[in-house]
Design a protein around this nucleic acid. Structure first.
Lengths: 177, 177
DNA sequence: GGGATATAGTTGCATCCGCAACTATCCCGA
DNA sequence: TCGGGATAGTTGCGGATGCAACTATATCCC
């Protein structure tokens, strides 16, 4: 479903022939185009931004994400589960990511004294320095590759649309009509 | 940068304190919100769709993508490089993906007689059957999770915006002003 | 108090990915 | 015809992911 702009009529017909029904009845063409555009835009952006960030700071996009989440909050600390949540990765993924960040000396993990199950991940001074060093170039890259592609009005529309989609897919699967 | 809607002013201030400059000068807040919305929407959609597809058809999202690309074209065949291109994955990734699809009997790989460097990946009758079996549920899931989230007008705007972003990031890095 | 249950986090395992290096093939010019 | 260079594809390798199972801790209820 990641096709770009080459959507000839013959191809749609070909697809419908395989499916045994008109492809449009299963997924409206306009929705299909939007879905392909989402996959394409996301893929190109993350690929470019990730390699630029790695080159300039030796940090993966996921590393940056996690550190940015910690940088945002007071005390620069979050519980593991909460951090996994906001960074959009699995708990196991976060465990290992924090392992690596800890090896770099960018983050520490310490057990909560009040609830022994909980562990707090905290940005270290060294981590803050690394983040401060990496952030400007990365944020500017986002501004250039993503922000500069659209005028303000369209950017707002994009945000609005994407938020509705995210909201409709929050949490668990819901029974559709 | 994947934060959801909880963007308290205190958090922005906290971030600016770390960066040593107002975060807004590096990345406009409106752009930051859009970027976060994109990451969130993409993450939730692909996670949900991928697990649904795996459950219903034992096929990964990437498998489906590749097979859909082959299904779309006449002869149900594409050259490896071209297929990697439209499926948005690396050449090495495609090599191994086609390996797996071939093990399932869904795709064959055959050397081009005219140019020995070229290999054609072709959907087999069994692969067509598997795709026909998997597609309706998946396309309906896309329609429901993605399509049903937005009215037609906004879907068009979304497509337009995403395409501009994709176009601005086509191919190689370009020198920004 | 003590065991059933729930929650937080980690680990085993299988999988998947991309980059860089490598092989195979083709093409072009001398 | 031969050698250099371009192109297509594969493989070695290191790294990252998620799910399910597991450990550790807390809580609830009798």
């Amino acid at each position: 479903m990641a096709t770009e702009q080459h959507h000839g009529d013959g191809e749609v017909a070909e697809l419908s022939a395989i499916l045994g029904v008109d492809a449009g009845t299963l997924l409206e063409p306009a929705v299909a185009r939007a879905w392909i555009a989402l996959l394409t835009a996301y893929g190109r952006l993350t690929r470019a931004l990730s390699s630029e960030l790695m080159d300039s700071s030796g940090m993966s996009l996921a590393d940056f994400d996690v550190m940015a989440q910690l940088a945002r909050v007071e005390g620069h600390s979050l519980r593991m589960t909460e951090l996994a949540d906001v960074a959009l990765i699995s708990k196991s993924g976060l465990t290992r990511r924090v392992d690596r960040l800890a090896i770099n000396g960018w983050v520490t993990r310490r057990r909560c004294t009040e609830d022994g199950r909980v562990h707090w991940a905290t940005l270290t001074p060294l981590g803050i320095k690394a983040f401060r060093n990496a952030a400007p170039a990365h944020l500017r890259a986002v501004a250039q590759r993503f922000g500069a592609s659209l005028p303000a009005r369209e950017m707002e529309q994009l945000t609005s649309g994407l938020r509705k989609i995210a909201a409709a897919n929050a949490e668990r699967v819901r029974e559709g009509a």
